[in-house]
Amino acid sequence: MIQRILLSLALASSLAACAGRGADMEAGTPGDPLEATNRQVLDVNLAVDDAVIKPVAQGYRAAVPAYARTRIRNVLDNMQEPRIFANNVLQGRFLDAGHTTLRFVFNSTLGVAGLYDVATDFGIARRTGDFGQTLNAWGLEDGPYLMLPIAGPSNVRDTVGLVGDGFLNPISWLLPFGGNAARAGVGGVDLREQNIESLDALRGESLDFYSRLRSVWQQRRNAELGRTGDTGDRLDVLEDPGAAPTRVPAAAR
Rank of each mutant, 00 (worst) to 15 (best):
A57D: 01
Q219W: 15
D121W: 14
F94K: 00
P65I: 11
V118G: 01
G166M: 11
V216W: 05
E35T: 07
R93G: 00
V248A: 09
E35L: 14
G123P: 05
R227T: 10
L6C: 01
T246K: 05
A17R: 12
G229F: 02
E205D: 15
D165E: 14
D24L: 11
N155W: 00
C18H: 12
T231K: 00
Y60S: 00
W217D: 12
R157K: 07
R61K: 12
L174G: 10
L168M: 06
R61Q: 09
R192W: 09
G123I: 04
L146F: 06
E205Q: 14
G187L: 04
D43A: 15
G229W: 06
R61N: 05
T134L: 01
L135T: 00
L225H: 11
F94R: 04
E141M: 08
A137L: 05
S211N: 14
D142Y: 11
T70M: 09
E81K: 04
T101Q: 04
D32N: 06
G179L: 15
R4F: 06
L46I: 14
F167Y: 09
Q40H: 13
L213A: 10
T37Q: 10
I53K: 15
V52P: 04
D240A: 07
S206A: 08
P144F: 05
V163F: 13
S172E: 07
V160T: 03
R203I: 13
L148S: 14
R103A: 04
G187F: 02
A63Y: 13
Q80W: 14
T134W: 01
L175A: 04
D117S: 03
L148Y: 11
F177M: 12
L15C: 10
R73Y: 12
N222G: 10
V186C: 06
R39W: 10
L162R: 14
D230E: 12
A16F: 15
A113V: 09
V163G: 06
A51G: 12
E224N: 12
N88M: 06
A68S: 09
R214Q: 13
A47T: 15
N107Q: 01
E224D: 11
S13L: 08
I72S: 03
T228L: 10
N107P: 01
T100E: 01
A23W: 04
A10N: 06
G152A: 15
G59D: 05
G31F: 12
R71T: 07
R126W: 08
W217R: 11
L46W: 11
V48K: 01
D130S: 06
Q3K: 08
A201R: 11
T159Y: 04
N180Y: 04
G232S: 02
W217L: 13
C18G: 13
L135F: 03
Y210K: 07
G161W: 00
D32Q: 02
D121E: 13
Q58T: 13
A36P: 08
L90I: 08
D158F: 03
N87L: 08
L140S: 06
G242M: 12
S172A: 08
V248Y: 03
D158W: 04
A66T: 15
L202N: 06
R192I: 15
L162A: 12
A182G: 03
F209A: 10
G123T: 07
V237T: 12
T228Q: 07
L90V: 05
A97E: 02
Q218Y: 05
A250T: 11
N222I: 10
R71Q: 08
D50K: 14
I5N: 05
Q80P: 05
G185Y: 08
